[in-house]
């Protein structure tokens, strides 16, 4: 076992850490940085619960090693809300539309949708369903999640100008 020194930013803040060879990014975020908002489900890239952004694109944090993020910018669900605690429009839309039940899949859904809505400001329900096809939810039947995403798109568009 070797420890590797890494420097990265997490939610815009600089982080320096020493990480083991085989530490996954998901475990690094949760256990070493105490950012437990990123959830771990299957740990083999199927459920999408651990989705985060690496250099602004979505990725499964269970399928990356912490050591690979040296020099990169990581964004987690904790980085969505404003510094004063105001919810991101996507989070507010999930709250208002009952977009979550147990909440386990929610961080992954949010991080997937942040990227998706950034590229597709006016999606159809079918587009949203395809976008979240890599995120499993066992509570909601997805209906409320799709409604939340469409509402979030509307809110983000109103916010634009």
């Amino acid at each position: 076992m070797t420890l590797h020194n890494i420097k990265l930013t997490v939610n815009g803040l600089p982080v320096e850490a020493a990480v083991d060879d085989r530490l996954t990014l998901a475990d690094f975020l949760r256990h070493q940085l105490n950012l437990t908002g990123t959830h771990i489900g299957c740990e083999h890239g199927v459920c999408g619960a651990c989705t985060i952004l690496v250099d602004n694109v979505s990725a499964r944090s269970c399928l990356m090693l912490a050591v690979q993020t040296d020099g990169l910018a990581v964004r987690t669900v904790e980085g969505l809300q404003a510094t004063d605690g105001t919810l991101h429009p996507l989070q507010a839309a999930f709250r208002d539309n009952h977009g979550l039940q147990c909440g386990y899949c929610t961080p992954g859904m949010l991080m997937t949708l942040v990227e998706f809505l950034g590229e597709n400001p006016q999606p159809s329900a079918a587009d949203v369903r395809e976008a979240i096809s890599g995120n499993l939810c066992r509570c909601t039947g997805y209906q409320r999640i799709v409604e939340s995403a469409l509402d979030a798109a509307k809110r983000l568009n109103e916010q634009e100008p």
């Binding site: 085989r22 996954t24 083999h44 890239g45 199927v46 269970c62 990356m64 090693l65």
Partner: peptide, 26 residues
């Protein structure tokens, strides 16, 4: 070799593979 890791990392997490060394080419 560790390329995108989208299959290899899953196989490692499931312990289907036991390589002694990983060479990251990212």
């Amino acid at each position: 070799l560790l390329a995108g890791g989208q299959s290899l990392m899953a196989m490692l997490n499931l312990r289907y593979l036991h390589p002694e060394n990983l060479v990251d080419i990212n």
